[in-house]
């Protein structure tokens, strides 16, 4: 029974997220002037879209529950690639303006590579070095992107 409830909850999740997002869009739309049908204001269409998303979220949930299958194909979510990707790109975005392209791209490569188990650090360092040089040559010097290769050099 508990297992069935679990499946049920998971089936409801996809539609639920859509409906909740719709409610969020609609709620914020109410803070903008709605206008009238004669002259729709900036809140008119957002409110409509929010309401439509609530409706579609309900339809999706009904459909998923009827199909009776958990919407996730794999039982366990694969967190490792996701966490490594998020961490790598965050570090890159935060450091790019502060320390420059070369160190931030090396960190980006080394961190996203952690998304896979059992990798060879030497290979990763090689890829990182290659991308640091390649990016500097082609994108910064070649195409003139306004990024410092290395801040303070």
């Amino acid at each position: 029974m508990a297992r069935e409830t679990g499946t049920m909850l998971r089936s409801l999740m996809a539609g639920g997220v859509v409906a909740a997002f719709g409610a969020f869009v609609a709620a914020i739309a109410l803070t903008y002037p709605l206008g009238s049908a004669f002259r729709p204001g900036p809140g008119f269409v957002p409110l409509g879209i929010g309401l439509i998303m609530i409706g579609l979220g309900i339809l999706v949930a009904v459909e998923d529950v009827r199909a009776g299958v958990a919407p996730t194909p794999e039982a366990v979510p694969v967190w490792r690639p996701m966490v490594a990707t998020v961490a790598g790109i965050l570090v890159f975005a935060l450091l790019l303006d502060r320390v420059g392209y070369v160190p931030s791209s090396i960190l980006l490569v080394l961190i996203v590579a952690r998304g896979e188990r059992g990798r060879n650090w030497l290979t990763d360092l090689g890829i990182a070095a290659f991308m640091a040089v390649f990016g500097t040559l082609v994108f910064i010097w070649g195409l003139g992107l306004p990024i410092e290769p290395m801040v303070g050099l």
Partner: peptide, 18 residues
């Protein structure tokens, strides 16, 4: 692919930045 994907991430980040 394990050689390729870190490079693609760098390209993507540079691409959106530019």
């Amino acid at each position: 692919y394990h050689v390729l994907y870190p490079c693609i991430f760098v390209f993507i980040c540079l691409g959106v930045y530019s």
